[in-house]
Design a protein around this nucleic acid. Sequence first.
DNA 1: CACCCGATTATCT
DNA 2: GATAATCGGGTGT
Length: 193
Amino acid sequence: MNILNTSFYSHSTVEVAQKLLGKILVHEVNGNRIAGIIVETEAYVSLNDPASHAFKGQTPRNAPLFGPVGHSYVYFVYGIHFCFNIVAKDESEPAGGILIRALEPTEGIDRMMLNRKNDRLRDLTNGPGRLTQALEIGKKQNGLGLIKENSLYVEDAPAVPHSEIVAGPRIGIKEGLEHQWRFYIAHNQFVSR
DNA sequence: CACCCGATTATCT
DNA sequence: GATAATCGGGTGT
């Protein structure tokens, strides 16, 4: 399987968010793969997007969003959860990231169940805070390049047909609701809510 | 299934 | 001092 590289991530954030659907997110922990198919994403597109962490300019927290594409941006919310983003933007944009909101579990499911303290397949990775817990993604993974050497990366897989991609407003935000920048695979039971 | 609410802390104002 | 790109448990229908 090919690992997605810089050229894959060097396009507009909204475009890459759609193209990530169907790809495989992999975290290797102690040589074991924990992985799932990406079934739900959201694009956060920088300076004109009031919902993006990058909207008010660069700070130490959001610095990865302004850095090279193909790196991770992991942040801590509500005092409890981590959310995992992939930096992606075309060269004209100063910042941009894609929130991975849900996966369909494929590998390391036993380990996910232990991590989540839950043995129901549907509840392992159907939400941004849940999938980081299932895949053991936390602050240590913030700012990493998504390459084999870092044990965290995305593998290529056949593109999801456009007719199976649903767009809608992003979840959990108060501004920018007019944009349809949440994308998910139609009829997939692992999409959140 | 729908709605409501408390948990818990890094980050920025 | 307020806020937050969420989750899980509770209650009611």
